[in-house]
Design a binder for these strands. Structure first.
Lengths: 117, 117
DNA sequence: CTGTATCCTCAGAGATACTG
DNA sequence: CAGTATCTCTGAGGATACAG
């Protein structure tokens, strides 16, 4: 991409696949609550993200786990206990997210006209 | 994000907004065709992305323009002519996209088990 | 506590036809 | 050439109830 030799369709497909792993209204929110090595239980996440429904929380956690971003640990205890943390690969998402953040912050520097929304 | 002091909700919202500018099935494909300073007409883009409908092409171009990523130039000629190119800010998206691409490429290095889809 | 199952709504996306 | 106007379909997301 930085290079001059790329195939638009291939590069776009690659980035799109990566974006898909993080897409949707909730995944990023969940990931940000787990960044920096934090380990949270299902109910911790419910409290941290009050607007999410149980369905969406469970569903997105399943997807993040299937995609290898999040690790789920279930303890066989009498009140069930399950916790979630990021995998090393999940943690490695940070730089990419940072790059996006700094890109948005450059908006005002480089696009003076800005034709309004 | 790399820093230890961030508010999950704020950071997530920021990244989500940035991702929104690039979301959807077509925007990345359009952007990749315009990277590297290329200037394309509407019909060039139609040819470059044959599966896109006129509606979606026009709609996504409007959005990219409104968001300040793409610049539209209409020439007042007898067969209408319009071309599209990236704004400087649009060009500046590359590093962020690169970061995402290198992240996906690290998957196999760091997540040996991979529980299948 | 940690989830599933069901039903519903709505915006994104596609097909097709038409226009300055 | 460069679009707009409709219509329809689909799937993400949400509300609510139930279960191990």
């Amino acid at each position: 991409m930085t290079a001059k030799t790329y195939t638009p369709r291939t590069a776009a497909a690659g980035v799109e696949a990566a974006l898909g792993l993080v897409e949707g209204r909730w995944k990023l929110l969940i990931l940000f609550h787990l960044f920096d090595g934090k380990v949270l239980r299902y109910s911790d996440l419910e409290r941290a993200i009050p607007e999410i429904s149980q369905k969406m929380l469970a569903q997105q956690l399943r997807r993040l786990e299937a995609d290898g971003l999040v690790a789920r640990t279930a303890y066989d205890e009498v009140p069930p206990r399950v916790d979630y943390r990021l995998t090393p690969w999940g943690q490695a998402l940070c730089p990419a997210l940072d790059a996006f953040l700094s890109w948005t912050e450059r908006r005002d520097d480089e696009s003076p006209p800005r034709p309004a929304a």
